[in-house]
Structure formats: C-alpha cells, structure tokens
C-alpha cells in the first residue's frame, strides 16, 4: 500500500477522488503523524526535489505547513509570495508557468484568489501541482487534514454526521469537505443564513439548515467556517453581533450536538464572531490544534504520493 502510486498527476481537488484514493492519502499521512512526533522528523524521500509554494493570497498557516512538509521530506522548498514579485508587476499566470517550467521544479503548490486558476496553471506547467486553495472552489489538503483529524478521534468517517456552519458561499474548505465526507460515507449538513449559502447547494448531497438549534441536533462533528470579511463584496449579513447571536458557536448551541461532538475550525479564527473563545479552547471538545498537526502530515503524504509518479530525481538515484 505505502509504495502504491497515485493515479493522478496533480491534486487539484477532492471532486473526482474516490474513497480508495482518499484512504490511501489518509493512511500514508497517518504514518507521517508518528514520524513528526518522533525526534527524527526528517526523511530523505524527496532529496533533490524542488517544491515551490506559489501563493497569490496571504497565508501563514497553509504555506508554513507545506514548507515544513517539504523540508521534512528532504526537498528544497522555496516560497514565492505574490506581493513584490513579478506577479504583482502584472505577469500573467501563463507567463509565470513558463518561468517556473524553466526552473525544473518537481512540485508546485498554488494558492490563488480565483476559482479555477490552479487548474489553469496545472495545464501549463510540467510538474505536479497541488491546489493550496483556489477562490471559492476547493482546498483539498484542508479537507484531507480535517478527515484525518476526525478519523483519528472518532475511529471512522463513515456513518458520522458532520455539520458545516457559516459562510459556505465563499468557502473552498466547505466544498472540499462536502466532496470528501460524501465520498467516505458521512452525512453532511450545512447551517447558515440563506445569504451565505450558494444557490442549489442542496444538490451537492447535503442537508441544509438555517437554524443552529435544529441543524446541530445529533451531530458528531461541528465544522465552523471563518467569516471571510475580505470576500464580502456586499452586505451578506447585517452585523457581526447579529451573526454571532444566531450562528456563532457557543456553549448553548454546542449543547444541542451529541455530548461527544467535536469542534473544528480551519483557522484563522475570528473569536467572538463565528466561535466563542470558551468553546474554541475547550481541550475536551476542540480538534482545532489537532487540525494544524494533521496539516503537516497530510501535506507530506500528498508530496510523497505525487512525486512517486515523477521521473526519478538525480538526488534520489
């Protein structure tokens, strides 16, 4: 199993992955969790490989996580932020792709504010591409790390009920999680005001609720989404105060879920907006710290699997 190849050149999204491929990634990541906890965190699997993190949006968490993942596997990792780079100077995505091709890299991790932009890049570069989040489309490694955190805590994914709460409309995390959880046999609920749920979202195999008191009943996992202030192009909600009153997760609303229900958040949290500090910091209920830990392991698994499909590097030979 651990030597098996991955049947895709890129990881652009969860949509299109089956339970076998998802399980393959999660199982592999499981091993990296142990490695990361040991004193000897470094492996030379990707020695001689070059990984570039190309981020067109600000990100600390995801970029650091990918950087650490690459370094722990022995790859050379370079970060390219859009601010101050040629990207900022108006270079087109396709020109950037041509530039990167000339640098002979092995894996490109891309985050971009436009849905579909990572796919466009993947069609132009000759390395493996990992989607680090594109617009409101997908964020596959986030869904994988969420799944790993849930699986380790609950022992399974199949049969669980997971509520995804908040700004689903603008959330790539929500979309990737819907695909992954559906593929793995969990039931997905979406909870939020109608203005933050995109049209026809009920056709994505989810149950839709507009009332936390109903939607949270009997759920095993509560995933809170960040209210993306920077993406609010209009007035989707009247005020933060009103939002927190109806859709913010606090003790009272948490009590509606199963007694052993866990809380997740992709970070960074807006405390007092979508989540009360009291529940976010509850070590009994919150998986938020575990999510960050799983993030590194999952990204190591993704780098490991995708580079298996590449021609052998000189360094590793």
């Amino acid at each position: 199993m651990t030597d098996a190849r991955f049947p895709h050149r890129h990881l652009l999204g969860i949509q299109g992955l089956g339970p076998v491929e998802i399980t393959q990634l999660l199982d592999l990541a499981e091993g990296y969790v142990e490695q990361n906890r040991s004193n000897d965190k470094r492996k030379n699997l990707l020695r001689g490989r070059t990984v570039i993190n190309l981020f067109y949006e600000n990100s600390t968490r995801t970029r650091t996580s990918f950087e650490l993942a690459g370094k722990r596997l022995g790859a050379d990792v370079i970060n390219m932020q859009s601010a101050g780079s040629s990207v900022q100077k108006g270079e087109t995505l396709i020109d950037t792709a041509m530039t990167l091709n000339a640098m002979h890299l092995d894996v490109l991790v891309v985050r971009h504010p436009d849905s579909g932009a990572v796919k466009l890049l993947s069609e132009k570069v000759n390395c493996a591409v990992i989607n680090g989040g594109d617009g409101s489309h997908e964020h596959p490694t986030q869904a994988l790390l969420d799944a790993l955190a849930i699986r380790r805590h609950k022992g399974k994914l199949s049969g669980l009920t997971v509520a995804i709460c908040g700004d689903v409309r603008h959330s790539r995390v929500a979309r990737s999680n819907i695909y992954l959880l559906n593929a793995m046999g969990a039931s997905v609920r979406l909870i939020g005001p109608r203005t933050l749920l995109p049209s026809a979202v009920d056709r994505m195999g989810v149950e839709v609720f507009h009332d936390m008191r109903k939607g949270l009943a009997d759920v095993d996992v509560i995933m809170m989404l960040r209210i993306q202030n920077e993406r609010m192009s209009g007035n989707f909600i009247p005020s933060i105060r009103e939002y927190f009153h109806f859709f913010g997760l606090d003790r009272e609303k948490l009590a509606i879920a199963k007694p052993d229900a866990v809380i997740m958040h992709p970070g960074p949290m807006n405390r007092g907006v979508e989540i009360d500090s009291d529940v976010a910091d509850d070590v009994e209920r919150s998986l938020i710290r575990a999510q960050v830990e799983m993030g590194v392991a999952v990204r190591m698994a993704c780098l490991d699997l995708l580079t298996r499909g590449l021609p052998a590097s000189e360094g590793a030979a």
Binding site: Q15, S136, P198, S199, M204
Partner: peptide, 20 residues
C-alpha cells in the same frame, strides 16, 4: 454584478459567483 456564469448548481460547485 460580479457574476461570472449562470447561477445554479454548477456555479456553486465551481465556486464561481452566478448571474441568476
């Protein structure tokens, strides 16, 4: 305003804002 394609399931899946 801001819409990129027809509003509906496909736009929702693609993460693109729709024009109803």
């Amino acid at each position: 305003e801001g819409g990129l394609m027809n509003e509906g399931e496909l736009a929702t899946r693609m993460g693109l804002s729709g024009i109803p």
